[in-house]
Every structure is written in structure tokens, then in C-alpha cells.
């Protein structure tokens, strides 16, 4: 199979180049002095300065961050519950519908989800007077609905990997179900919850279509502002904004990645130690 390895390397290089060149170009041109985004006019950080002066963008970013933090948190709670139900509760009446409802938002075209949520909010307002108008609340509800589906998938797959007898053992040792959840299940699946939260946060921060439907006139999120600017053409301050966002994400994900691979290495080392210990134990047992 060695002969084929050049093909594998090539497909990796081409694939990752395709994924990363656009992002790299965004970053490079954010330091371009020229207003014509694609003509290099020397190095400059003036677009970052301009960005910091732009109240519209800053306001939208602040709104988006708050929405993302709240929705991600609610989505993790609901998604964890849903993941537990799917992974641990076995068959129950209405399970098929439930599982369908958790999968569908993942793939449902956003225009449909957005439209239907808006119509729901309008109808609810007519019937019960809540939510009065549209704004942050409706955006959060919409984002939770979308992102909890992702959290559910992550939690469910983590739970199916996890040895169920760990939970049974805790129960056998006298812990009640809710204690089992908080003392055993939660700590073990915590990394999955963290990545679920991060994913939900970025998805919420990024969503344009659904948000456009359910946002009220006074509540423009960052993607909505970007979209309206981008429609008019490329603009260098958007590049600067993109660079900031990409940097934050890259740092966050890299830290997580490095931590994970450190852990893996530590685990491998420990496994070797354990192997040695095993030999030692056999020896001592033979003597004792």
C-alpha cells in the first residue's frame, strides 16, 4: 500500500488548501492599506481602527455575543436532556417522533425553519400576547432550537460510547439516579458538553437566515449587518472583522486540541506504566 501514499498526501494537501486558502486570503487582505480589497497597497492596520469606530458593527457584535452565550447555554442543557433520553431511556411511546424532531433541525433548510418560527411567534403574539414583538428573545428561542440538535447528537454519541455499567455501578453503590447523573455521567461526558457548547456558540454567532426571519427591526445581529454590507461588495473592514473572529476561534480550538493530544500522550505513557505494573504484580503474587 506504500505506493498509494502519495495519492493520500496529495488529496490531503489539495483538500486542506481548498479549505484554508480563502480564510488565509481574508486575513492577508485585512492588513491591506488599499480600499480595493484585492489590490495590495501596503501593510496597514487601519481597518481594525475603523472597525472599532463602527458603532453599528460593535452593537451588532455585542448583541450576537449575548445571544450566542445564552442560546449555547440553554441548548447544552436541553440537548443534554434530549441526548440522555435517546441514549439511555430505551424505547418509549413517542420516541420515533422525538428522535425525528432532534435530527430534523440539523438538516432542515434554514429558510423553512426561519419562516416557520416567525409564523409561530406571530401567531403566539396574536393568541397569548407573547412574545411581544420580535427581538433578542425570539432570536434566542430560534437559536436554541437549531443548536440543541447539534448538542443532542454530540451528547447522544458520547453516551452510547460510554460504558453504561459505570452508571449502574454507581447506583449499585447506593447513589440515586440524579446523583449518578451529577457524580458520574456529567463529569465523564463533560468534554462533549464543552465542545457542544462551543459549537452551539459559534453556530448561533454565525446564523444569518433564521435570525433574519425572527429578528425584529431594532435587533440586527452581526451576520445580518455583515450580509447587508457584503451584498454591496467587498469591504476591508469586514476582512478585519473576519480576521478577529478567525483568530479567536483558532486559538480556542487549538487550545482544546493541544489539551486533548497532551491527555492522549499522558494516557499512552500511563498505559505502559500499567503494563509494567502488571508484570510486577504477577511476580509479587507468585511470591506472596
Amino acid at each position: 500500500m506504500q505506493g498509494r501514499s502519495w495519492f493520500r498526501t496529495l488529496s490531503l494537501i489539495v483538500g486542506f488548501a481548498f479549505l484554508y486558502i480563502p480564510i488565509a486570503s481574508l486575513i492577508v487582505y485585512s492588513f491591506n492599506a488599499s480600499k480595493l480589497v484585492t489590490v495590495w497597497g501596503g501593510f496597514s492596520t487601519k481597518w481594525y481602527g475603523a472597525l472599532l469606530q463602527n458603532d453599528q458593527i460593535l452593537g451588532a457584535a455585542w448583541l450576537s455575543l449575548r445571544v450566542a452565550a445564552i442560546s449555547a447555554t440553554v441548548a447544552v442543557v436541553l440537548g443534554t436532556l434530549a441526548g440522555m433520553v435517546l441514549a439511555r431511556f430505551g424505547p418509549f411511546k413517542g420516541r420515533t417522533l422525538f428522535s425525528g424532531l432532534t435530527t430534523a433541525p440539523l438538516v432542515m433548510p434554514e429558510v423553512i425553519t426561519g419562516l416557520s418560527l416567525l409564523l409561530l411567534f406571530v401567531t403566539m403574539e396574536q393568541l397569548i400576547g407573547w412574545p411581544a414583538g420580535r427581538g433578542m428573545t425570539t432570536i434566542i428561542i430560534a437559536h436554541v432550537t437549531l443548536t440543541m440538535a447539534y448538542v443532542t447528537v454530540i451528547v447522544q454519541s458520547r453516551l452510547t460510547q460510554m460504558d453504561e455499567s459505570l452508571e449502574e455501578a454507581a447506583m449499585d453503590l447506593g447513589a440515586r439516579p440524579w446523583k449518578v447523573f451529577f457524580l458520574i455521567t456529567l463529569p465523564i461526558i463533560f468534554p462533549a458538553l464543552l465542545s457542544g457548547w462551543l459549537l452551539a456558540f459559534t453556530l448561533s454567532l454565525d446564523d444569518l437566515v433564521i435570525t433574519s426571519f425572527v429578528a425584529g427591526p431594532g435587533s440586527s445581529t452581526l451576520p445580518m449587518v455583515i450580509f447587508s454590507k457584503v451584498r454591496l461588495g467587498v469591504s476591508p473592514d469586514i476582512n478585519a472583522l473576519a480576521t478577529i473572529l478567525v483568530t479567536i476561534v483558532a486559538i480556542g480550538v487549538s487550545i482544546a486540541g493541544v489539551a486533548m493530544s497532551r491527555q492522549q500522550k499522558a494516557r499512552e505513557r500511563d498505559a505502559q506504566m500499567a503494563l509494567a505494573a502488571n508484570q510486577q504484580m504477577i511476580e509479587s503474587l507468585k511470591k506472596g
Partner: peptide, 22 residues
């Protein structure tokens, strides 16, 4: 794997926007 999911975590809108420039 990290490299493959990293773009997933960056803004979809901005990544599409990057192609306009390209």
C-alpha cells in the same frame, strides 16, 4: 481532524464572503 473541523467553527458567512474576494 482538528484542521477539518476548524472551518466548521469559523463563520460560514465570512467564508462565503472570502470567495467573493477570490
Amino acid at each position: 481532524l482538528l484542521l477539518a473541523v476548524l472551518p466548521f467553527f469559523t463563520s460560514f458567512l465570512l467564508r462565503v464572503y472570502a470567495w467573493i474576494g477570490l
